[in-house]
Amino acid sequence: MAARTEKQKEMEALSKATHFSEEEVQRLINFFETVASNGKLDRNAFRDVLHEHFNLTEASMMDRLFRAFTNSAESTINKHDWVMGMSLLLRGTLDEQIDFVYRVYTNSAEDYATKPISRDTMFFLLKNTMVKIQNEEERDEGIKELVDLVLKKMDVDHDGKLSLQDYRESVMKDPLLLEALGDCLPNEGSVRTFMQVVMNTEPPL
């Protein structure tokens, strides 16, 4: 009975810390236990989940998502990290997703808020998300132009890089800029399917 009580307390705590009901938390953990090994989700298994359920395929972006889920240098995701991360991924508010996506882009676990995104990082992110073309030089020139456009649109303080404040102000004005440096959130269709199949519920409209 004591173990059951502790489990209920855990479900309640996770529910209060996320956008999920206690029942939804339990379903998320049940799913986690089917894809994890010994209570831990490694990088490859996490990639498989992102690919199969959310149509995310870009390798370096999935690695950045993995790091954002762990919030540390850990090499695996535990069930607490899993539920917290899925709350942001599936039901995060715009403000929460701004922080989350910025953390993904900076590839930083704890110091992302003070770590600006440099021109070189923008180039790297956009290069990895763009379709490869035969002429590498033309491709690189095109990416440099995209970086210039992003900076023109989002570099509020005009210092040649994107701070969290720059990014937040820009996205709050135009939410379409949330994933300006590459897709790292699932589209509405895959979220709806996951919520229906795994969570047995409808996502909020």
Rank of each mutant, 00 (worst) to 15 (best):
L126I: 03
M172C: 04
G182R: 11
V35L: 08
L181G: 03
D120M: 14
M199G: 06
R139Q: 15
T129S: 14
L149Y: 04
S170N: 08
S21C: 00
H51V: 14
L181M: 15
F32T: 14
C184H: 06
L181Q: 03
L56G: 02
A2I: 04
L125S: 01
V191Y: 05
E24W: 02
R192T: 14
S118V: 15
E52L: 10
E145G: 01
M199E: 09
K7N: 06
L205Y: 10
Y112C: 01
N128V: 01
E110R: 14
M172V: 12
E58A: 07
E110M: 07
A2V: 09
A3R: 13
I117A: 01
F69A: 11
F194W: 06
M130A: 13
V156A: 03
L56F: 05
R43K: 12
K153T: 11
M1Y: 13
T57W: 11
E6T: 10
I133W: 10
V156Y: 05
P203Q: 10
K161M: 15
M61S: 07
L50N: 09
R4Q: 07
T57F: 10
T106A: 06
F100C: 13
D63T: 15
A68C: 10
D148H: 02
S87G: 10
V104M: 05
T70N: 04
P204T: 09
H53Y: 11
T76L: 00
F124W: 14
S190L: 03
M84Y: 05
H51F: 05
R67P: 06
M130D: 10
N200M: 12
F69N: 10
S60N: 06
L94I: 07
R119Y: 11
G189Q: 13
V150F: 04
N44K: 12
A73Y: 08
A2D: 09
K9N: 15
M11D: 14
A109R: 00
R64V: 08
Q134K: 01
E10D: 12
F66I: 15
D140C: 01
Q134L: 12
E33A: 00
L181K: 06
S118H: 09
H19N: 09
F20W: 06
M172R: 15
L90W: 10
K79E: 02
R47F: 10
K132M: 11
T129I: 06
S87Q: 05
A73C: 02
S87A: 07
V156K: 06
L146Y: 04
E6M: 07
N78W: 02
E202D: 12
D63K: 15
D99L: 07
D157G: 02
D174L: 04
